[in-house]
């Protein structure tokens, strides 16, 4: 258990920027509920931020491969498509 705790503490600085990116996305949508342009910009910004975080994170951990980058890109695209569909349907 102690080993797991040490592992979490060691990885915390890597995940704090991710928490910031995701919190920014939620805050942007909450604050600008009816501003479609801003919401779209926030969604695109968060998606790029997430991909960038993934690339940097895996580069630092020396396990950055094309498949990994593609996975972050496709997860981001899925998230973007879901959010865009809501913005368009609202």
């Amino acid at each position: 258990m102690n080993h797991h705790l040490q592992k979490v503490v060691r990885h915390l600085p890597h995940y704090l920027p991710l928490v910031g990116i995701l919190f920014f996305g939620y805050w942007g949508f909450y604050t600008f509920s009816y501003d479609r342009i801003f919401q779209t910009a926030v969604a695109v910004g968060v998606a790029f931020g997430y991909i960038t975080w993934g690339v940097v994170h895996h580069y630092v951990h020396k396990d950055l491969y094309l498949e990994v980058v593609l996975e972050y890109i496709f997860v981001s695209i899925l998230g973007l498509v879901i959010i865009f569909s809501l913005i368009l349907a609202a």
């Binding site: 995940y15 995701l22 997430y50 993934g54 498949e67 990994v68 997860v75 998230g79």
Partner: peptide, 15 residues
């Protein structure tokens, strides 16, 4: 060699 599960779950959680 895959993405971090915690990161993906967090991202989908935000969505």
């Amino acid at each position: 060699f895959v993405g971090r599960t915690v990161a993906h779950v967090s991202f989908i959680g935000m969505v």
